[in-house]
């Protein structure tokens, strides 16, 4: 399996998700919402199928390139969206996460990777999989929290109460932040094994630390629940920009040209 067959899977998954979403939108019956769950989960199954096949034919974990991380991101994002929908009945959340997941699938259709089995020695470590998986889960949660934050800003702007929505955002940030902390610390433990230094201020490390601190600011800003709700929502929305720079933008930064973390393409 190479990326050449990816468009097929991407279209199939998007179509299945679309059916699931449309069903929820037009058949607003609680009794039959399991029906759309089948379509949504089948969609994830399609992606999982591609990923497993890719993993087998690459003979290495598919975590090395940007397109590979985007693939995982789409999977985790859609899983989170579906869980949040069926647990808290937030339809807009499902719609947003699936749109974001589809966006990343289509970036991959436009920008597939060249099939490359090689994995440099430094990446051949037990830490490789946990480090990357934990980070992608964190990113997926934090993306969802920022979507929630932006929704809150819109509601606030229109004069609606936002207590409920910011409470939801807080919950998701806590989950995402815990995973982010794992990712950061796993990275440090791995770096010690691979390079002898747990922290070397490599540009990716610098940005990862910054991302972590911005969410830390949000968490502490929110300890006094009653006040400065609007500012909190802004911090949450902006934090996501820092996260995106850390993940995707780092390849283009002047300060990052010598990074050991720049994804190969």
């Amino acid at each position: 399996m190479t990326w050449l067959s990816f468009p097929l899977y991407a279209y199939l998954t998007s179509a299945l998700w679309l059916v699931g979403i449309l069903f929820l939108l037009f058949v607003q019956s609680k009794k039959y919402s399991w029906f759309s769950a089948v379509f949504l989960i089948l969609g994830i199954g399609g992606l999982a199928c591609f990923t497993i096949n890719l993993w087998i034919s690459l003979e290495r974990p598919p975590f090395r390139t940007l397109a590979e991380t985007r693939l995982w991101y789409s999977i985790f994002l859609s899983v989170i969206g579906i869980i949040v929908y069926y647990r808290w009945k937030l339809f807009w959340m499902l719609a947003y996460t699936l749109s974001l997941a589809v966006l990343f699938l289509f970036i991959n259709v436009m920008n597939p990777d060249t099939f490359d089995k090689t994995l440099m020695p430094a990446l051949q470590s037990l830490w490789f999989i946990p480090h990357v998986v934990v980070y992608i889960i964190a990113y997926a949660f934090l993306a969802v929290s920022s979507l929630t934050g932006m929704k809150g800003l819109v509601l606030k702007h229109k004069g609606y109460p936002v207590e409920e929505i910011i409470k939801l955002a807080d919950n998701i940030v806590y989950l995402g932040f815990a995973f982010l902390t794992f990712g950061l610390l796993f990275g440090a433990l791995w770096a010690k094994e691979a390079w002898g230094h747990y922290w070397s201020w490599d540009p990716k490390e610098t940005w990862a630390f910054l991302t972590w601190m911005v969410y830390l600011i949000y968490i502490h800003f929110r300890i006094n629940k009653k006040i400065m709700v609007k500012q909190s929502l802004w911090i949450l929305s902006l934090a996501f920009i820092v996260l995106l720079i850390c993940w995707l933008g780092i390849n283009y930064l002047p300060a990052a040209q010598e990074s050991i973390h720049v994804y190969s393409s």
């Binding site: 201020w201 540009p203 610098t206 940005w207 630390f209 910054l210 601190m213 911005v214 830390l216 600011i217 502490h220 800003f221 300890i223 006094n224 720079i245 930064l253 002047p254 300060a255 040209q257």
Partner: peptide
């Protein structure tokens, strides 16, 4: 207090932000 904590994390974050843009 929390405000002191937020301010302390923020100044460090600002310096790290500069580090993220300016080659060291």
């Amino acid at each position: 207090n929390v405000p002191a904590a937020v301010s302390a994390i923020s100044v460090v974050a600002i310096l790290v932000l500069m580090m993220g843009f300016i080659p060291q």
